[in-house]
């Protein structure tokens, strides 16, 4: 199996919660401040496993899917990380390209910056449609037998 042209990189999405703890301790009483911040990290590699080091990265935010929101370069290990704007919930599209090969990955980011990424699976609409089809199957079967009795 040959890979480089298929190359469409295997992009592993890792949602990383980076805890940035800012602590202030006072002599009288105590005060602790903290910030929970979310970073999204992708790892782009060829199907051979070779990292796409130096690949171009373009990130599109949910509010404008045609204009790049952020651009960057993968590191030597094919990694690139960015901090989504938590006020913009939706899908962040991340495109990675190198030497005529590339791929795009779609990363859902919910309110509060919670990443809920998964590739494959079924969306809500698909599940609803499947449910309707199943119900209709039962109804149709029932109608069929009712008609034969009549």
């Amino acid at each position: 199996m040959w890979i480089r042209w298929k190359l469409v990189p295997v992009i592993i999405i890792t949602a990383v919660l980076c805890l940035v703890l800012t602590m202030q301790v006072h002599a009288h009483g105590a005060k602790i401040e903290y910030v929970v911040d979310m970073m999204v990290e992708i790892v782009a590699m060829y199907e051979s496993g070779e990292p796409m080091s130096g690949a171009q990265v373009v990130v599109y935010a949910p509010d404008d899917i045609s204009t790049p929101w952020l651009t960057g370069i993968c590191d030597d290990e094919g990694r690139y990380s960015f901090k989504p704007d938590t006020s913009m919930a939706g899908t962040y599209d991340v495109q990675v390209r190198q030497a005529g090969h590339g791929d795009i990955v779609h990363i859902p980011v919910g309110d509060g910056g919670t990443a809920s990424g998964s590739s494959g699976g079924y969306g809500v609409g698909q599940i609803a449609l499947m449910s309707v089809c199943v119900v209709w199957g039962f109804i149709g079967t029932g109608l069929y037998f009712l008609r034969r009795k009549a």
């Binding site: 040959w2 890979i3 480089r4 042209w5 298929k6 190359l7 051979s48």
Partner: peptide, 21 residues
């Protein structure tokens, strides 16, 4: 349509998967 996938590409290393395939 990527025709280098049929004929290979001399500008790509011969041991690259593109040329191997």
């Amino acid at each position: 349509f990527h025709f280098d996938h049929i004929f290979g590409d001399a500008e790509t290393p011969l041991d690259d998967n593109l040329n191997l395939g």
